[in-house]
Simulated scan of single mutants.
Amino acid sequence: MYGLGLSCAAALGFFAWQSFYPVRPTDGWDYQVAYRDVPKAASLALAQDGSLIVSQELRDRKGSIVRIHPDGQREVIVPNLSKPDGMVPAQGGWVFSQEVGGAPVSLLKDGVVTDLFSGDNVQGLWNDGDDLYAIEDSKGDGRLLRYRWSDGTLTVVRDQLNEAESITRCTDGRLLYTKKKEGAVRQLTEDHRDPVVLAGLNQPTYLMCDERGLWISEDSTHRARLLLVDPQGKQQTILSFLKAPQSIIRTDKGSYLLAEGGRNRVLELTPASIDSLHGEAD
């Protein structure tokens, strides 16, 4: 019994260490906590006035989309949601998903929510101008959907996907999506082969591309990473010891905001050449 007690204590201590160990940036980067007390922070978007729009991925109609104003005040703009997850600017507003069965993908514009179509456990979204892509995070029967803005037609682009989570188009034109359980990023191709672009990842979730390359967050509750693959294909760990990081966006001043849902906060990530304007250390 004494030995069992020691083993249990050691295990609990190990998990506590992983939960509270501070996030570690790589050389040349720094981070600060931009916003605390953001329950289950998932997707991020910036409004024209500098406000941050955040989806709070709580279950059972306890989730919401919140606007954090530049002065720090918070305003719930869409309440009573169930696992609001993906969010992307589109049509002068924001499209958002709810990761539950049969929930609508909706457009929030000028304070009005309009349902576009329904899906099952829709997570990732990407607006491609004429088309909106939505990907379902389901075990074995997920779909990649394409919604045509001009006439509202909905097309199944892929089916029988297993835990696909996000989709984005990169600056080189490639349309990429993640398969979480497979630990891979794949490229959507016309021949339906969808080759693996990256493998060996730890539960990859959100993707984002800019001139620095492809950003990937790992949706693990322990020792998750934020990765960057540069245009030459070199992979670098930018942040480590994260807890369930989600979406990442770039700000107008050249820094990045990262939703860390496992710690209910939003981080600001800056290259060494840029000074952060707000926030506090971990």
Rank of each mutant, 00 (worst) to 15 (best):
D210Y: 03
V229N: 03
A184T: 15
K181R: 13
G233H: 02
G173I: 12
L207C: 07
Q236N: 12
W215N: 09
E211R: 12
N202I: 04
T189Q: 03
K234I: 14
M208D: 09
L207W: 01
L228I: 01
D191R: 12
I248Q: 00
A224N: 10
Q236Y: 10
L201M: 07
G200K: 10
K181D: 13
V196R: 07
K181V: 08
T221C: 00
Y206N: 12
D194C: 11
L239C: 10
L227D: 02
Y177E: 05
E182G: 12
T237F: 12
L214N: 01
I238Q: 08
P231Y: 05
L198W: 08
S247V: 06
I249V: 14
D210L: 08
S220A: 14
V185F: 05
P231E: 04
V229P: 03
L214Y: 00
R212H: 12
T221K: 04
S217C: 08
T237C: 06
P195K: 10
S220N: 15
G183H: 02
D230L: 11
E190W: 07
L228T: 00
E218P: 09
A244F: 07
T178Y: 09
G200M: 12
D194E: 05
K180N: 11
A244R: 11
G173V: 14
S220E: 10
H192I: 12
Y177S: 02
L239H: 09
V229W: 02
A184H: 05
L226T: 03
T221V: 07
P231K: 07
Q203G: 04
K234R: 13
Y206Q: 14
S240K: 14
K179P: 00
L214F: 01
Q246M: 13
A244C: 09
E190Y: 08
I216C: 04
P195Q: 07
R225E: 07
Y206P: 01
A244E: 13
L242I: 08
Q187M: 13
K243T: 14
P231G: 03
S240L: 05
Q246N: 15
R223L: 10
R186W: 08
D230C: 11
G233L: 00
P245Y: 00
C209Y: 03
P231C: 04
P204D: 07
E218V: 10
Q187N: 03
A184K: 11
L207T: 08
K243C: 11
L201I: 02
G173A: 12
K180S: 13
P195I: 11
P245R: 03
E218S: 04
D230H: 10
V185I: 15
L226K: 10
S217W: 09
D172S: 04
R225W: 04
I248A: 00
P195H: 07
I238D: 07
P245A: 04
L242E: 02
H222I: 11
E182T: 00
D194M: 07
I248E: 00
S217N: 11
I249N: 03
D219S: 12
D191F: 11
K243R: 15
K180Y: 06
W215G: 01
R193C: 05
T189H: 12
D172G: 02
Q187H: 00
